[in-house]
């Protein structure tokens, strides 16, 4: 009988694969996007079983929260509801993509099958690295300066967006 952790890992892994396959096979873009959201939640669970709480939370907040909202907005604005606008055509690029993808799969498989790491348990240090506490610690001590200065970058981008999108500014 496998432990609960392994059981969860297998279940979430199957879920992740199933939802990602569904993402690329659905003809309806909105259904595709929704499957991608489900996929992100599966990944969230996987990260949690690996004790990486911070990455898990960021996964939900950033990807499922912010980026997917953007994707849905784009689908809405482009009015991609009809599937015929996405009719597939054969192109040499697809063959190239397939070759690339299979090369990647071969590489991954040879890495996984060829050289088991032998570790069944993460070291304490590795476990401590994933917590929000340890990330917060370095963020406010060692990386304080970049953490603060990046706010200037965000502000500059915000002002820029206002300048470029402001309706009244047009002559």
């Amino acid at each position: 009988m496998p432990s609960l952790q392994v059981l969860l890992f297998i279940l979430l892994g199957i879920g992740a694969i199933a939802t990602s396959v569904a993402t690329i096979t659905r003809r309806n873009p909105v259904a595709s996007a929704m499957n991608l959201v489900a996929h992100f939640f599966m990944l969230f669970g996987l990260y949690l079983t690996l004790q990486a709480q911070f990455v898990a939370i960021v996964q939900i907040l950033v990807y499922a929260g912010a980026i997917m909202v953007l994707v849905i907005f784009v689908i809405m604005l482009l009015n991609l509801g009809k599937e015929q606008s996405l009719d597939e055509k054969f192109s040499p690029y697809k063959v190239l993509g397939m070759i690339m993808a299979s090369a990647f799969v071969v590489m991954m498989m040879s890495m996984i099958l060829g050289k088991p790491s032998g570790y069944t348990q993460l070291s304490d240090k590795a476990l401590a690295n994933g917590t929000t506490e340890s990330i917060g610690n370095v963020l406010f001590t060692q990386y304080l300066f970049p953490f603060e200065i990046i706010s200037l970058l965000l502000l500059a981008a915000l002002i820029g967006a206002v300048v470029l999108a402001n309706r009244t500014a047009v002559k």
Binding site: L152, L153, A156, I159, G160, L164
Partner: peptide
């Protein structure tokens, strides 16, 4: 570089 570039783009 990004702060400078973003300001320049705008």
């Amino acid at each position: 570089i990004e702060i400078m570039s973003v300001s320049f783009y705008v």
